[in-house]
Simulated scan of single mutants.
Amino acid sequence: MARLVLLLNCGSSSIKYQVSDADTEEVVAKGLVQKVGDVGVGTLDHEVGDQEFHIDQHFANHTEALNTVLGMFREHGPDLDSVIAVGHRTVHGGRTFQKTTLINDEVVAKLKELFGLAPLHNPAGVAGIEAAVAALPDVPHVAIFDTSFFSTLPAEAYSYAVDTELADQYGIRKYGFHGTSHDYVSATAGEFLGTTRDELKIIVLHLGNGASASAIDHGQPVETSMGMTPLQGLVMGTRTGDIDPGLAAFLHRKLGWEVDEIDTWLNKKSGMLGLTGKTDMREVKALIDAGDEKAKAGVEVYVHRLLSYIGSYTAVLGGLDALVFTAGVGENADWIRALVVERLAPFGVKLDADANAVRSKDPRAITTEDSSVKVLVVPTNEELKMAREVVALIENS
């Protein structure tokens, strides 16, 4: 009988899930629930092999949504009696959780104490944990933290220039996110280059609707762009990335906006949406091709921010062996990659235009053999990394 691992990723209004074989690492089933907790009708898409099933239904909360997912498993498979563990993607571990952790009542209580650090993500994650534990009480449940890979950042990188006593009391520091992706992609890049990341200086650009950069020095992360929250850093789909912190006070004084209004504007109405009116880079590209100057200017801001991070991280690393693109935009938007890499030409980085145009699910180089830095595209696989973390923990517990 197959040994299956169920992975759950509960967002504020969604549940993404996947079932994989613990031994072969084959994906057996996957699905997505959207509009959880919304007033209107939500959707559930469930895939098993080459079969697809769809439900339109109102989901009042994560418990109701997860119970509907379990019903899909009962009706269409696979049989969850073969599940040996459930892995939960957990966005923020704060200073409390620095590695993958077996979930118990004490862990759940501590996660609830961290709600203030990730108010949009951690409450949904805990709701998913509680619902899944109630539905599958006889198997171990494991938390995999987005922040854990960056928990070993040096103090010079994670510290903000604020009162140290206040920072220590309230956990005010850089935590970093997308850690599972940066971990998987940097390791895979090392393997692709015929060595390990322990021998390399690597910058990873995880570019999707959420976006982050990391600097990894011989296997150890030494910088990352997201901070205490996922708002800091690169330009994203709806998030500003880096801004003058004084902007919040300005908006309050000038427009009378309160904290929640400012937070919503910075997180959900800014980024590429604010710059171009679109969040999908394919739509942004279509606007540019049609001569839209606003979209063109927005992309220039996006690329400028990327170049600024590449330059600063190269200095922090003291050199660079590989620059790696990953995630939705990083893997698929060859025109964005070209805009970035071509700007690095003065430093001996040479784009191979034909290689860059290739669409593939495999790791690949997009620079010439004589390029001073290897530029790679490495598809991320956070679910595979999570499944491996779950299996390793329960087999060694």
Rank of each mutant, 00 (worst) to 15 (best):
S151W: 05
G125Y: 02
Q98W: 14
T90M: 15
L136R: 04
S151F: 05
H88M: 02
P78Y: 00
N104I: 07
S82P: 01
A85T: 06
F145L: 07
I103D: 05
V83L: 12
P78S: 09
A131R: 10
A124W: 01
H141S: 00
Y158T: 05
V107E: 02
V108R: 13
G93H: 10
I129E: 08
A157M: 01
P140Q: 07
V126A: 07
P123D: 11
Y160A: 01
P123Q: 07
A161Q: 13
G116C: 08
V162D: 05
A135L: 05
A143V: 01
F150K: 00
A85M: 08
D163Q: 13
D146V: 02
V83Q: 12
H92P: 02
V86D: 01
V126Q: 10
T147K: 08
L153V: 00
L80T: 10
P154E: 00
A155T: 14
E113A: 15
Y160Q: 01
G128F: 04
G116D: 14
V107W: 08
L80F: 01
I84C: 05
E130K: 10
G94Q: 01
L120I: 10
H92Q: 11
E156C: 10
R95W: 14
V133S: 11
K112W: 12
T152R: 07
Q98T: 15
T100H: 09
D79P: 07
I144Y: 11
G77Q: 06
T90W: 12
T147V: 03
L120F: 06
D163H: 13
A155P: 04
L153M: 00
P78D: 06
L111E: 07
A143M: 06
A132R: 02
V139H: 02
Q98Y: 13
L102I: 14
P154A: 00
V83G: 04
V142L: 01
H121M: 09
